[in-house]
């Protein structure tokens, strides 16, 4: 038996360290869920369209970031700009080519169209990139861990979480304080009235779809620094994003943030203090309870 180069790390299993670790994990995961869900919330709230391809947009962003990193050597710290822009155009193009034709028809039409789009994107990536798991190595943040109150805080997740808050702040400012933002709000409230006021709602819808894609593009760009990329990666994230949107209230950015942080904390605390296997059970139970009490979600219109 060859002795390893150093002794085993000591166990930092104190009650306070455990608590702070669980709290920080919950907040970080929640902030990341918020950014993934923000785009979905925007599209759902403004256009009343459920974008079933949202998880696959996340997956495409992660692949884009992975290839930018592995082929061109661009670190996720910088490539998020490119993945965000790429997803803006991909999402806007999806609206113009697929979703636009379904608006104003049966409620099922855009739902099925985006469902078809999700299957297309997933199978396209499966076919082109194989189902292999791809991990981006050698990134600037890789392996860097901060230690706060006995808790280990991985830098990639921390940066992703903090950046999520910044992007959500910018998005909120954009919706609430700019003329285009007001036009988006007006379109969400009453499309016909907005058109009578001279707002080109078709362009607003394109823009909203684009912004929705951009949010998930930025999230995917950062997440590639610590998560494996593969065609199924978006599945559970998109499910949680749907819960975040419904819990927070359709179209509400602060609602999405609060709901996502709540879900992150419930997942983390239930996972550690009850049992890891029930962490998603707790998340969906919380959703059911909130929806029973307040069907429009916490901040719903």
């Amino acid at each position: 038996m060859a002795e390893s180069v150093c002794s085993r790390p000591s166990n930092g299993g104190t009650i306070l360290a455990d608590f702070s670790q669980v709290l920080i994990d919950g907040l970080m995961n929640g902030a990341i869920y918020a950014l993934v869900a923000a785009g979905l919330s925007l599209i759902w709230g403004v256009m009343d369209v459920i974008n079933f391809a949202h998880g696959e947009f996340l997956m495409v962003a992660m692949y884009a970031c992975y290839w930018l990193g592995s082929l061109l050597g661009i670190d996720p710290l910088f490539s998020w700009v490119l993945t965000g822009a790429f997803l803006f155009f991909l999402s806007a193009a999806s609206y113009l080519l697929v979703v636009r034709r379904c608006i104003g028809r049966s409620a099922m039409a855009p739902l099925l169209a985006t469902f078809g789009l999700s299957i297309f994107l997933k199978n396209f990536c499966l076919n082109r990139f194989t189902p292999n798991f791809r991990l981006l190595s050698g990134t600037i943040m890789e392996g860097r861990v901060l230690h706060v109150m006995g808790a280990s805080v991985p830098l990639p997740q921390l940066v992703t979480a903090l950046f999520s808050l910044v992007v959500l702040g910018c998005l909120y400012y954009f919706i609430k304080r700019t003329r285009i933002g007001w036009a988006i709000q007006a379109t969400a409230m009453d499309r016909e009235a907005a058109e009578l006021m001279g707002i080109d709602t078709g362009r607003i819808f394109t823009l909203v779809f684009g912004f929705g894609g951009m949010c998930v593009g930025i999230a995917g760009g950062f997440m590639t620094s610590y998560l494996a990329v593969f065609p199924e990666v978006g599945a559970l994230f998109s499910l949680i994003a749907f819960v975040v949107v419904a819990l927070g209230g359709f179209g509400s950015i602060p609602g999405a943030l609060l709901a996502a942080l709540l879900i992150g904390l419930v997942e983390s605390f239930a996972g550690f203090y009850i049992a890891p296997v029930i962490k998603y059970v707790a998340v969906f139970a919380l959703y059911v309870v909130v929806i029973l009490i307040r069907p429009k979600g916490l901040f719903g219109w």
């Binding site: 994990d25 199924e232 559970l236 983390s268 996972g271 550690f272 890891p276 296997v277």
Partner: peptide, 15 residues
């Protein structure tokens, strides 16, 4: 035990 295809494994590893 953990859920297949989890978004994170923080709770599992922390446990």
């Amino acid at each position: 035990p953990f859920t297949v295809g989890a978004t994170n494994m923080s709770s599992e590893v922390q446990t």
